[in-house]
C-alpha cells in the first residue's frame, strides 16, 4: 500500500501501519528524518539509527537502515561503542525526552562533553507516552500528568541550554509544524562532525494534550503555529519552555570543536611520536 510513496525506500513498510496514535507527531518526525537521510549525501548503509525505549524508541524498528533498539536510556552508550568500533558509520540516536534526559541523562551530557561524533534527535512530547503519561524532566511546571494530578511542581530542563553548556557543536529546535526546517536541521546535524543535537517538539494528544486541555493532534499543531517564534542564533538560556506553550525555534548553536577521536589521535600522536598509528576502528 505504502510502497509507491517516495520515502518508502527507507521505511520497513512491512511493519506499517505503525503503533503511534492518530495525531501523534512521531510519524511526521520520521517522515522528515527519512527525507534528511536520503538527502544528506551518505549511502544508506553508512547511516545507523539507535533508539531507546518508549514511543520514540520504536523509530529504529520502522527505518530500513541498520538500526538497534537498546535498553531504556542507553542508546547513547550503545551508539558510542558503535562509533568507536567503526568510525566510518554515521550514528544517529533517535529517542524521546524521557529516555534521553531522565533514564539516560548522564550519558547525554558526557557524550556532549566528549564531543562524540554522533547526532542525537530528541522527540520531546513532554511526557512518557508509552507507559501512561508520567512526568518527565521536560514536563512544564503546572502541567497535569498521571503522576502529577494537581500539576507538575518541578522545573523542566531547557534542552538546548543543557546541550549547549555540555558542549554540543550543533543545537537546533523545531516543532512538527516546521517540517521543512526540521528536515534541513536534521540534514545539517547528520553532516556535522561532532555531537549534534536536534530537539523536535511533538504533540502527544492521547496523554499530554488531553490532560492539559490542548485538544487533538491537529489543535496542538495549530498551537505550535500560533505560539512559535523563530530566532536563529538565540541565546540558549532564553529558550526554555513553560506551560504557556510559547516555543522559540531555530538553530541556536553551530560551532567547531575537535571530536573525541580527533582529540584522542592528536594527543597520542604528540605523546608517542611517529610510532603511533591513528586509531581508525577495529573492523
Amino acid at each position: 500500500m505504502v510502497n509507491n510513496n517516495p520515502v518508502s525506500d527507507l521505511l520497513r513498510t512491512d511493519r506499517m501501519p505503525h503503533i503511534w496514535c492518530s495525531g501523534c507527531g512521531l510519524g511526521t518526525t520520521v517522515n522528515c528524518f527519512v527525507r534528511a537521510a536520503a538527502g544528506c549525501g551518505l549511502p544508506p548503509d553508512q547511516i545507523t539509527v539507535v533508539s531507546g525505549i518508549g514511543c520514540t524508541g520504536r523509530v529504529a524498528g520502522y527505518l530500513k537502515l541498520d538500526s538497534f533498539h537498546t535498553t531504556h536510556g542507553r542508546p547513547i552508550p550503545f551508539a558510542t561503542g558503535l562509533k568507536l568500533a567503526n568510525p566510518r558509520l554515521k550514528v544517529v540516536v533517535y529517542s524521546g525526552d524521557g529516555d534521553l534526559f531522565a533514564i539516560g541523562g548522564n550519558h547525554f551530557i558526557h557524550a556532549a562533553r566528549r564531543n562524540m561524533d554522533m547526532t542525537v534527535i530528541c522527540v520531546n512530547n513532554f511526557t512518557y507516552g508509552m507507559t501512561g503519561g508520567q512526568v518527565t524532566p521536560t514536563t512544564p511546571t503546572g502541567a497535569i500528568a498521571s503522576t502529577a494530578p494537581y500539576g507538575n511542581t518541578e522545573d523542566p530542563f531547557n534542552l538546548p541550554y543543557l546541550a549547549d553548556s555540555a558542549g554540543a557543536v550543533y543545537v537546533a529546535r523545531w516543532t512538527t509544524f516546521h517540517v521543512r526546517q526540521a528536515t534541513k536541521a536534521m540534514k545539517e546535524a547528520i553532516q556535522k562532525k561532532g555531537f549534534s543535537f536536534v530537539e523536535l517538539v511533538s504533540p502527544c494528544p492521547t496523554l499530554y494534550g488531553r490532560r492539559n486541555r490542548m485538544g487533538d493532534g491537529l489543535d496542538m499543531m495549530e498551537g505550535y503555529k500560533e505560539n512559535s517564534t523563530i530566532r536563529n542564533g538565540a541565546d540558549t538560556r532564553d529558550v526554555g519552555m513553560d506551560i504557556s506553550g510559547k516555543i522559540v525555534c531555530g538553530k541556536f548553536v553551530d560551532r567547531e570543536r575537535p571530536s573525541f577521536l580527533e582529540q584522542y589521535n592528536t594527543r597520542l600522536a604528540a605523546r608517542l611520536g611517529p610510532s603511533y598509528k591513528n586509531y581508525e576502528g577495529v573492523l
Binding site: 510513496n5 520520521v30 517522515n31 527525507r35 521543512r180
Partner: peptide, 13 residues
C-alpha cells in the same frame, strides 16, 4: 508535497 511531509502515516503524497 507538503501533505506528504506532514503525514505521520505515510498515507498521502
Amino acid at each position: 508535497d507538503l501533505c506528504g511531509i506532514y503525514c505521520p502515516d505515510f498515507a498521502i503524497f
